[in-house]
């Protein structure tokens, strides 16, 4: 098996897949902890559908660099969705449902009316499920992804304490002088960037899993914010790497394999947590 892996590694697109996979898994797990604790777990799904709709529009408009449209649209949607959390006429979960399903339907409709390639079902399927999209990246995409991921990780580290304070008790933070509105906007923008990047790894429909599972797995075992974040990042990267390796060797779709690895890790962590509680810690 190691020889086979080495042979595969001769291909540049396999190396790209691993680089991008690790970076995306790292970023999404960090923000995953924040999302899960703010009770916005489903936002990954909602935003990815919006990104899908934006991508359809970009393809129809024949934009050479689709990111120019997808990123701003997703960031704006993220800001709108996360702001309606606290006090809005339309509650958070209804807003997510409306926007996400609407965007998905609209995107698919557009792609049918203005088909951009002969294989429509294939393109849609590949975008939704990410069967081999991680292995079909060009060097430019890898560079863009690397830059954005490093930026996200830096932002997270620099604003870590602020993010913890706002996630734990937003009212207290606001009352004692923290600019919670700016912090929430920042979190929204970062989440949007990660969602757009993660579409390449696991496809639109499975992004939620990449964001939620590592955080939930880590919370089964650890109970301080810092250790949960670190463990979540660790687990996410391990599962992404295993998922890609298994999918390359066994010929399974990459996206689903990564999510399956995440689910397996969650199961094991839950078991570990039960054992730990059982031994009376």
């Amino acid at each position: 098996m190691p020889d086979k892996l080495l042979m595969y590694f001769q291909h540049p697109f396999v190396r790209y897949a691993f680089i991008v996979g690790v970076l995306i898994a790292l970023c999404s797990s960090l923000l995953g902890v924040v999302l899960v604790l703010k009770r916005f777990s489903y936002i990954g799904d909602g935003l990815s559908h919006v990104a899908f709709g934006a991508m359809a529009v970009a393809a129809v408009m024949k934009l050479t660099n689709e990111m120019l449209l997808i990123l701003p649209v997703t960031v704006i949607s993220a800001i709108l969705l996360l702001r309606t959390g606290q006090n809005a006429k339309i509650r958070g979960d209804a807003a997510i449902a409306m926007i996400s399903v609407g965007a998905l339907a609209f995107g698919y409709l557009l792609m049918n009316i203005f088909p951009t390639s002969s294989n429509l079902t294939g393109d849609v399927c590949s975008t939704l499920f990410g069967s081999a999209s991680i292995l079909t990246l060009t060097q430019k995409e890898v560079v863009l992804c690397a830059i954005l991921s490093v930026a996200v990780v830096l932002v997270f580290i620099l604003f870590y304490n602020r993010i913890v304070a706002v996630t734990f008790d937003e009212t207290f933070a606001k009352a004692t002088g923290v600019n919670t509105q700016a912090c929430n906007l920042l979190i929204a923008a970062v989440i949007a960037v990660i969602i757009v990047l993660a579409m390449n790894l696991v496809g639109s429909l499975l992004i939620s899993a990449l964001v939620i599972f590592p955080a939930l797995s880590a919370m089964r075992i650890f109970s301080s914010f810092k250790s949960v974040t670190i463990c979540s990042a660790f687990l996410s990267v391990i599962c992404a790497v295993s998922g890609i390796v298994i999918s390359i060797l066994a010929g399974t779709p990459a996206g689903s394999t990564i999510v399956a690895a995440d689910v397996a890790a969650f199961g094991l962590c839950s078991l570990a947590g039960l054992i730990k509680r059982g031994t009376g810690r």
Partner: peptide
């Protein structure tokens, strides 16, 4: 107690990466 947790995480990682041992070559 902390060490126990790290050992647990290591076990989880080993179990997940054990799946990489599959050598199902499907032409």
């Amino acid at each position: 107690m902390k060490r126990c947790r790290y050992i647990l995480v290591l076990i989880v990682i080993i179990c997940v990466t054990a799946g990489c041992g599959k050598d199902k070559e499907v032409p």
